[in-house]
Design a protein around this nucleic acid. Structure first.
Lengths: 204, 204, 204, 204
DNA sequence: TGATAAACGAGACGGTACGTCGTGTCTTTGT
DNA sequence: ACAAAGACACGACGTACCGTCTCGTTTATCA
C-alpha cells in the first residue's frame, strides 16, 4: 500500500505469471478458495512470494485475473463463439438455447469452484464485485440486451420494455438458484422461465 | 472436528450466548466480516475462546445464529407483522408494496453487513447456504407462494403457473442487483419488475 | 488461595484419595511428569477436579503424597526393614552394603520416574524441596549419622568428625551421578567411594 | 517435530538471537522458570514466536543456550580466568580456594535462578541433562582432574586414586546441598569437606 | 558485448489468529 | 452436605499465513 515504485511491466516474467495462474486455479479447485493461500500459490508455482505481491494486491485479485485469463484461453481455442447470441427470429427458442448452454456451463466443475469463490468475494468486497461484473458478466449480458432490442425491432417484444431490466427476468432467477442453492437447475427450469417472463403470469 | 463429546446444553450459560451474539454483530458491523475474528468476538464478549468453540464450529455459524436471533428479537418486538403479506385483491399493488419494503430493508445498514457476509459464505459453503435458505429465506418466500396461489384462485394468475418459480421473477432480479452490485435498487425498479413479470414482454 | 473454608477432614473420602494416588503414580509412570495433568489424574481416578483442588494445592504435592504413601505401603509390607542400618562392627562393609542396596533401588523403574520428577520439582521449588528432604531423605540419612556415631564410639572414626557432613561423602556423589547423569552407577563405584572417603586421598 | 526443513543459518538474525537470550534470562530472573513462557520471551524480545520455534525446540533449550552464551560473555570479559585452577603446591589450600569461589558463585542471584531451572530440567530430561553436563559442568570438573593428577605427580595424592571419582568427594556434597536444599552452604563447610576427603574419616 | 539494474527464487522476519489444552473457579445435579 | 461432572474465563501452546524485508541469482535492456 505504502510504496508502489511502479514495477516495470516490460521486464515482467511471463513464465511466472502463467505459473501463478495455473497454480491458483489448480489450488482453488483442489482445496477450495479459503484454503488456497498466497504462500501455497507461490510454492506451487515455484515462485517467490514477492513476485505475487509485486503484481497483485490480494488473493482475490490473483484468482480473478487467472479466471479471466482462463476465459480468454477458452475463447481463443473455441474461436470466440461464446460471445455471440443466436438470432433465428424465434426469440423464445433463442433464449432457451442460450440459457440451456449457461446451465451446462454452470455445472462444469472446472468453472464452478473458482467462479463461486469470486462471486462470494464480490458480494462482500464491492470494488472487486464491480470489477467482476464489468469484466465477466457485462459482456454476456450485453448480448441479451442486443437480442432483445432486435426483438423489439421485429415487434416480438413491446417497444417500451427496458431490455436491461427485462433480461434479468431470465438471468437472475437462474443466477440466484445457482448462487444460493435455492433450487435445482436444469433445462426444463430455464425453459419455464422464458415462457413465464415472455408471456407474463396473468391470463391473456 | 475430532471429538465433540456432546456438551451439556442444559448447563449452557445464557449470558455468554447473548454476549457472543452481541459482540459478533457489533464487530461485523464495525470492522467487517473478514476482520472479525473468533478471538475478537471472545474478547469483546468477555468470554473464553473455548466457550465459542464449544457451541459453534465456525465464525460463519456464530454469525448466522446471531443474525437469526436478531431477526427473532425484531419479530418479537414488532409483533410478527413481518411474517404476513398483504392481500388487497390487487396482486400487482400487493407485490409492489412488499418489494418496496424489501428494498428499504436491504438498505438498512444494520442488516446490510451481516447479511452480505452470510450470503457470501453461503455461496461458497453449500451446507451453510442451505441452512440460510431454509431458516432465513424460505419463510419469506413461502408468503409469495401463498399470495400467488390466492391470485390463482381469483383468476388473476393463470392456473398452470408454478408459484415457486413465478416468485423468482420478482425476487431474484432484486436479490442479484443487491448481492452482485449489478444495478441500482429503488422503488421504480421493483415496480417495473412486477409489471414486466405479471404481463410479460410480448405484445398482448 | 482466597478462601480455605477448612474442608472437613473427617468427611474425606478415603476411596477417592487412594484412587487419586494410584492414578497419579500410574500416569507419571506412563506419560511422564510434565504430561501428567490434574485433569488427567481426576479423569483416571473417576473423581471431580474439585476433589483434588480441595485437598492439594499443586500437581507436585499430589505426587509427593502419593509417593510417600507408596513408601509407607512398601514399608508395611516389608516389615520396616528399610529403616534399619547394619552394624556388623565393620564400618566399611556396612556402608558398602547399604550403598549397594541404594544403587539397586535407584534403578527400580517403579521409583525412578516419580522420584526424579519430585527431585526436579524440589530443585526449583524450595518449599517442596524442604518438605521432600524432611519426609523422604532425612529418615534415611539419620541412619547414617547413627552408624557413624557408633563407629566413633568404637574408635573406627575420628571423634572430631561431624557425621552429618561425613555422610555426604558417601551419599552425595551417588546422588549426583544419578540425578545429573554425570556418570554410571554400580556397586564397584560405591565401594570405591567408601574406600576413598574413609581413608582419604593422601598417602598414609 | 514434524518437519524441520533446516532453516538457513546464514540468514539468521543476530539481533534477534541476542534479544531472545536477554529476554529469556531477564524473565527467568524476574518471574521464575515455570512462569517464563515462549510467548513472553518473544514479546519481550520484540520477536515473532516463530523465530523462536524456528531455532529452538523448547523453552529449556532456549534458556540453556542463553545461559551458555552468558557464560561465554563473562569469560570474554574476565579474560578466561574462570577456566584455570590454582596450583600453589598446597593441594588442600587450592581446593579450598576454588570451592570458596564456587560457593560465592552459587549464591550470585544472577546465576541462581536460571541454573537451578536448567538443573531441574536436566534431572527429568535426560538428553538435556547430558548436554548440560557436557557443556557446563564437564569443563570445570576437568580442571579438578588435572589438579589431582598434578598432585599425584608430586606424591600429595596416592597414585592409585581415580581423580574422576575423587573429585566428587569435594564437588558433589556441595552440589547436593545447593540443589536439594539439604544444608547451608558456606566457606567453613567446603573447608571441612576438603579436610575430610583428603585425610579420610578414620584415625591416621 | 559487457555493465547495470530490475525482477526473480528463496526464505527469515514481526505479527495476528488459529484451534487445542490445561488451569483453577464456579455452578448444577444427583444422592 | 458432598462429590461427580463439567461449563466457564483465562492464558499458553505450537502452527499457518500474512505482508515486508533482505539476500544472492538470473535476465535483458542499454552503454
Amino acid at each position: 500500500m505504502v510504496k508502489q515504485p511502479a514495477p516495470d511491466t516490460t521486464r515482467r516474467s511471463e513464465k511466472s505469471r502463467r505459473a501463478i495462474y495455473d497454480a491458483a486455479l489448480a489450488l482453488v479447485g483442489e482445496v477450495g478458495y479459503p484454503k488456497t493461500t498466497i504462500e501455497g500459490i507461490a510454492a506451487r508455482a515455484g515462485v517467490g512470494k514477492q513476485t505475487i505481491y509485486r503484481w497483485w494486491s490480494s488473493k482475490a485479485e490473483v484468482l480473478m485475473e487467472a479466471f479471466l485469463d482462463l476465459g480468454e484461453q477458452s475463447a481463443h481455442e473455441a474461436g470466440q463463439e461464446s460471445y455471440t447470441f443466436p438470432d433465428t427470429g424465434d426469440l423464445a427458442a433463442d433464449l432457451k438455447a442460450v440459457l440451456r448452454a449457461t446451465v451446462d456451463e454452470l455445472r462444469d466443475p472446472r468453472f464452478e469452484v473458482p467462479s463461486r469463490a469470486l462471486a462470494a468475494e464480490g458480494v462482500v468486497n464491492e470494488q472487486l464485485g464491480r470489477e467482476l461484473v464489468a469484466k465477466l458478466l457485462q459482456p454476456s449480458l450485453q448480448l441479451y440486451v442486443e437480442r432483445l432490442r432486435s426483438a423489439q425491432d421485429t415487434g416480438a417484444v413491446r417497444p417500451e420494455i427496458d431490455p436491461r431490466i427485462a433480461l434479468e427476468l431470465f438471468v437472475s432467477p437462474l443466477a440466484q438458484r445457482w448462487l444460493q442453492h435455492t433450487g435445482p437447475i436444469d433445462h426444463a427450469y430455464t425453459d419455464t422461465l422464458v415462457d413465464y417472463a415472455l408471456y407474463g403470469l396473468t391470463p391473456r
